[in-house]
Amino acid sequence: MAESLRLPAEEKYKEELDYLKSIDNAPKPFQWNLSANMVRIFILGSTPADNMEREIPQKWFGDKSLVERSIVTLASDRGLLLIGDPGTGKSWLAELLAAAICDNSTQVVQGTAGTTEDQIKYSWNVSMVIAKGQSHDSLIPSPIMRSMATGTIGRFEELTRCTSDVQDALISILSEKYVSIPELKDGNVVFAQPGFNIIATANSRDRGVNDLSSALKRRFNFVRIPIVTNKKAESDIIHFRTKELLKRHNFDYNVSNSLLDILLQTFNDLRETSAAANSDDEKLESALSTAEQIGVLEDAILHSNFFERELTSKVLASSLIGSLVRRNPEDVSFMNKFWNNVVEKRKTEKEEAKDTEAAKEWEDFLNAGNSTMEVMK
C-alpha cells in the first residue's frame, strides 16, 4: 500500500485515526470506530479546547455545520446525499467520513450511464456457475452488499448519472435494509448489519440528466456543499491539496502570496463574469471550482520545476488558460474579452495604487495570457 499512487484516507491518516481511537471514551453509534465528536475532529481538525496531546490538522475546509449534519445523518436510518457543483469536495468529504467511521472508504460504486443493477446488488462468477451452479461461492457481492453485510459505509458516486431503474434499486436497500437473492435456496437474504449506511454524491450541474424519484429523495438527507467564495478558506484549501499532490514529486512547495492573490482574484472575476452571461455560449464550460484552481496551480508548479527556474505570473497565466479553455472558439472568445477587460483593469488598479511590484506581475500575467490565446486562435 505504501507504494500506491494514492492511498485511501484510512491508510493515509492511519496514525491519526489510531490516536483518536485510543483516547475516545465517548459512546459510539452502532459499531463505529470513533464517536461522532471524534469523527468531526478528524475531518475539521482539533482546537486547543479539545485538550489533545497532538494536533489533528484540518482536512476538509467548509462550514462545520455541514460536517456535523452529515455525521448525524449517517447515525440515522436515512442515507446521506452530498450535492453541489463539481470540485466542491463532495467525494473527499465522503471518503473522510467513511474512513473515520468504519476504517474503509473503498466500498464505492461509480455511477455512470452504463452502471447496472448488478453493480449495486450482486453478480455471478460465470465460470463457477457453469461448473457447479449458482451458490454462495459463485456469488459476487457488490460494494454496497459488502457494506450491508459488515455494517459499514457504502459510497455511491455521481448518483444522478445512473438511469432511473438503477437508482430505484437503492430504494429497497435504504428502506428495507436487505437484498434478496432468489437464485439461492438457502441463505438467500442478506440483511444490513447495524452501522450500515450509504453516502451518495450528486453533481448539481447534472440536474435533469437522471433526476431522483420522490421515493428515493425521501430516503436521503440532502447536504448541499457550496462553492467556496471566502478567500481565506479557498487559500487554505489550495495550499493543503496542492502540497499533498506535489509530495509524490518531492518538490518544495513555495508560492508567493502575490501569485496566489492573482490566482484567487482571477477565478473570482471569472465566476462573476460567467454568472452575468446570458447563455452557455457566453460563459466558460469550466465550473471554476476550487478543485480547478488546485489543478491550475499544480500544473504551473510542475511546469516551473521542469522547465523554468521559478514559478512566475507568466507560467501561471499559461497554465490557467490551458486548463480552462476547452471549447474553441467559444471559450477562447470569452477568455479573450475577459483578459482585455478585467485582467487589464486589475493591472491598472495596481498601477494607480503605486504598487509597482504587483503591477509588474499583473502585466506579465496579462501579456502571457494574450500570447497563449494567440496560439489558440
Rank of each mutant, 00 (worst) to 15 (best):
A99L: 07
L81V: 04
S105P: 09
R78P: 07
A94S: 15
M52Q: 11
Q110D: 13
L66C: 05
R69P: 02
R54G: 01
D77S: 14
S65T: 14
Y122I: 10
G45F: 08
M52N: 07
L82F: 12
L82Y: 10
T106P: 08
N104D: 15
G45H: 09
L66D: 06
V109Y: 05
D85M: 12
G89W: 05
P57N: 10
V108S: 08
T88Q: 02
V39W: 04
Y122K: 10
V72W: 10
K90W: 05
T88N: 02
S65I: 08
L97F: 09
M52S: 05
E55D: 14
N104Q: 11
N51Q: 12
Q107F: 14
T88K: 01
G114P: 02
P86W: 06
I43F: 06
V39L: 05
E68S: 14
D63S: 05
A49F: 13
N104E: 11
P86F: 07
E53A: 13
S46H: 10
S76W: 06
S123A: 12
A99E: 04
S76G: 11
E95W: 06
T115G: 02
V39A: 03
M38V: 06
Y122R: 11
S123P: 11
L80Q: 04
I56C: 03
L44C: 12
T115Q: 00
P86V: 06
S76Q: 05
L44F: 08
R40L: 12
L96E: 00
N104A: 04
C102V: 13
E117F: 03
I120N: 04
G84D: 01
A94C: 10
L96V: 04
Q119C: 07
L97G: 08
A100H: 03
T116P: 06
T112I: 06
S91M: 03
S70A: 15
G89A: 06
D118N: 13
G89H: 07
I101M: 14
P48D: 00
I56Y: 02
K90P: 06
S46D: 07
E68W: 12
C102Q: 08
I71D: 00
G111V: 14
E53R: 15
I71H: 01
T73P: 08
E68N: 13
S91C: 07
W92T: 15
P48E: 01
S123W: 10
E55C: 12
L96C: 03
S76D: 04
T106K: 13
E95A: 12
W60A: 00
T115W: 00
G84S: 04
D103Y: 14
R54A: 00
